[in-house]
């Protein structure tokens, strides 16, 4: 049963990655699209805690690194999303209690994740842009994720909670109803 649930989570992240590359390009701002995979990692962290989210972030990041049309050094998104999953899991209690906090958490994690990715690019000299352009991309992507979070986080949270262990779902029926 657990393996089945985890497989379902992998399927959800695969859908997010495909949507990000294929569908969201039509609404991109200068090529920057909402980072659905990152939002999903934050949601999983809020639902399941930092340990699970770090593992999930690693997997999601690796898929993001390998799925076409990615052409950067593999492992960079994996690193960024491990950090995102871990940090988001550490403050999950606060994000659980209010929808506003969870939206702000997505914004903060979008900043952290994109920054870690950009910094790894600078260190590896892999597709690094000039500083002003990098900051611009960073700002647009944080704004995108912030804008999308109120619409995407509650349904995703409900979905991930349903896919989560019974213990988690049973422990928080009240706050669940409020966030959704």
């Amino acid at each position: 049963m657990n393996a089945l649930r985890n497989a379902a989570l992998v399927a959800v992240v695969a859908v997010a990655i495909v949507l990000q590359a294929v569908v969201l390009r039509y609404v991109s701002v200068d090529g920057v699209v909402p980072n659905l995979a990152l939002v999903l990692v934050v949601v999983v962290a809020v639902s399941r805690g930092s340990q699970f989210a770090a593992v999930f972030g690693f997997g999601a990041g690796l898929l993001l690194d390998l799925a076409p049309p990615a052409d950067h050094v593999a492992g960079r998104w994996a690193l960024a999303l491990v950090v995102v999953g871990y940090l988001a899991g550490r403050v999950r209690q606060d994000a659980r209690e209010s929808p506003v906090a969870s939206v702000l958490l997505v914004g903060a994690m979008s900043f952290v994740g994109t920054s870690v990715f950009a910094l790894s690019g600078v260190l590896l000299q892999d597709g690094a842009l000039p500083v002003d352009l990098t900051l611009r991309v960073l700002a647009i992507s944080v704004l995108w994720d912030l804008m999308l979070a109120p619409f995407v986080v509650p349904p995703l949270l409900r979905l991930v909670d349903r896919l989560g262990s019974d213990e988690v779902a049973a422990a928080r029926p009240v706050s669940l109803a409020r966030t959704s």
């Binding site: 593992v55 994996a78 690193l79």
Partner: peptide, 24 residues
Amino acid sequence: THDGSRRVLGLLVLAALTVITLDA
């Protein structure tokens, strides 16, 4: 799970760095 999650974080960061090194 506090200690455990820190250990997992360390391992995963190491794994990511390994993948990056292999590829780069």
